[in-house]
Design a protein around this nucleic acid. Structure first.
Lengths: 322, 322
DNA sequence: CTGAAAGCGCTAACAG
DNA sequence: CTGTTAGCGCTTTCAG
């Protein structure tokens, strides 16, 4: 019987038919728990996310859900913003209830959690990378994305350039910031320290506050890069409140291309991450490691694209991401 | 051993200590699959959602995640917008891999899916209810919410009232619409058919299109109720594009109080659903049914609250939801 | 090529 | 109060 179900090659045709029809007649479904016990494989994949309220993560989860479902796996979600989330993930993994984990919010600061998980099951980092960790990692080229924005600003003659950035722990932020500053530096347009604001977390409110401070400077910026869209939407609202015309008096660029960026209220120029490809890559790597068909660690770096909208002058030519 | 772990009452103190220390020394973790096989309980709770990209659902999932994690359960998410989502849910449930399911997007049209699931495990409906289905249901009082908006409009002297609504399958929409129209009717302010638009799905783009059509009428509305916030944000952008001042020339009210509603770009008056309480209620009901401590079906109806912001005149007195 | 049996790790029931 | 055992439903191995 199991031979039929497993698609074993050497089985008589009439035998197989008999078994299959019996399966249908009885409405037989293999029991997941028994199978899991025997094979020590549950089909459950954990996804560690944070701040489901931040629109980027739902979009990431949706992409992951699609890929995992397609591959016949279940997606178990933990929110590490919730204090219990990390502990719950560790419990589930240590009890063998999870075959592998996709981390979307890893930083060096979550090393403890990572270490515990990876000791038990394959782990793949998606979105945020951590250089020294020994696991598969899928990210987009945030440095190139940052560079593209810097080049864009410099090439368009923006000179009083502002930057709203955040904690350096996430590789995404670090790389975007570095790429952006490097591109400006290379053209001799270093940014003034007074026009760099580092917020403590990523939210619309923080973006609004930071941009307000920049706009209150004696010499306010003529362009601001926000290291992600949530901040940029807040910055756009700051300009709105102070009646600073965008893009005439202020260019604004974000990062991620979340859905709201394209809404007329914001019409935000931003850098799009290839979420679908990232999710597909992460799932493929993880499943390959789980079923043992893959050995070495891989690092995937996907390209992303500057999406020019009305928060910067449309007519300005967007240079290629050098 | 199992007695200690299960917290069984009659066990010698020194015995328990010996066992516990051994557990600690060996780093023993009970195996989830074996336990699941023996008890036919996995600790996995399925959540069926849709359109994770619609901001209401992430907020709902976050609330559910918190409650389920707190209760020591895992949250498995299916996106039924993905064609495979429904089938995957059924498979998981029929193989015994899931102890119970929370449905956040049920309508009479998903009867097939519901029937299959509920035949196998306890099911709780959250957010959307379906009157004739025999299962626990947790919703907020959408009818009262709709009434509150109608009363608010009528009491504030709005007379050319518009409604942007959607498919009638979800109970939430049906009830909001009915409550709204009933409240207006009662005050003799039925709305003109030309000012009612029914969109085919809920998105910013649809809200924008619908509102644009309303604003192009010879006698455009002086107030529009959108049955959810995503539509309302689109409508707000329609007004922005046409330079219709809000709230001076147009009042706008949404429903759900998603995070973006409070952003300055929208500053949207809306009706807040008590998501945390709804999630807590749904989880409590489901777990109670799973462990057999509860028998009869329950229907929970939670109150919600009109949140007045700048898209309607702040000074106008918001009447109680009658 | 097909039938029979062992055993995965746990819990509940039973014997001491 | 504690030690032992049967058996959950599957897959894999071993006999036939």
């Amino acid at each position: 019987m199991s031979r039929v179900l497993a698609g074993h090659p050497g089985v008589q045709t009439d035998m197989r038919d008999r078994v299959l029809s019996a399966i249908r007649d009885l409405g037989y479904r293999p029991n997941a728990a028994a199978r899991a016990m025997r094979t020590s494989r549950t089909g459950n994949i954990g996804v560690v996310a944070a701040r489901l309220a931040n629109p980027l993560y739902p979009e990431m989860l949706q992409a992951l859900s699609r890929e995992l479902t397609r591959a016949g796996h279940r997606m178990v979600v933990w929110d590490v913003d919730d204090d219990r989330g990390g502990g719950a993930a560790v419990d589930a993994v240590r009890s063998g209830g999870i075959d592998g984990v996709i981390f979307t919010t890893a930083t060096a600061e979550t090393a403890q959690l990572y270490a515990t998980l990876t000791a038990q099951v394959p782990v793949v980092l998606m979105n945020r990378a951590v250089p020294h960790w020994d696991c598969d990692q899928v990210e987009s080229d945030n440095r190139a994305g940052g560079r593209a924005v810097g080049t864009y600003f410099a090439g368009a003659g923006r000179r009083r350039i502002g930057l709203i950035t955040g904690p350096l722990a996430p590789s995404t932020i670090r790389n975007r910031e570095e790429g952006f500053l490097a591109a400006l530096d290379r053209r001799g347009h270093g940014i003034d320290a007074s026009r760099l604001i580092r917020v403590d977390h990523f939210s619309h409110a923080r973006g609004l506050e930071a941009a307000t401070r920049l706009l209150e400077l004696a010499s306010p910026p003529d362009a601001i890069f926000c290291v992600n869209d949530v901040l940029a939407l807040g910055a756009r609202d700051a300009a709105r409140i102070r009646d600073v015309p965008v893009p005439e008096a202020l260019w604004l660029v974000g990062y991620d291309d979340i859905e709201m960026a394209s809404w007329p209220a914001f019409d935000l120029t931003t850098v799009r991450q290839p979420l679908t490809e990232m999710a597909a890559g992460a799932v493929t790597l993880l499943l390959g490691r789980i079923d043992g068909t893959r050995e070495g660690r891989e690092r995937v770096l996907l390209p992303n694209a500057l999406v020019v909208r009305g928060s910067t002058a449309r007519h300005a030519h967007a240079p290629p991401p050098d």
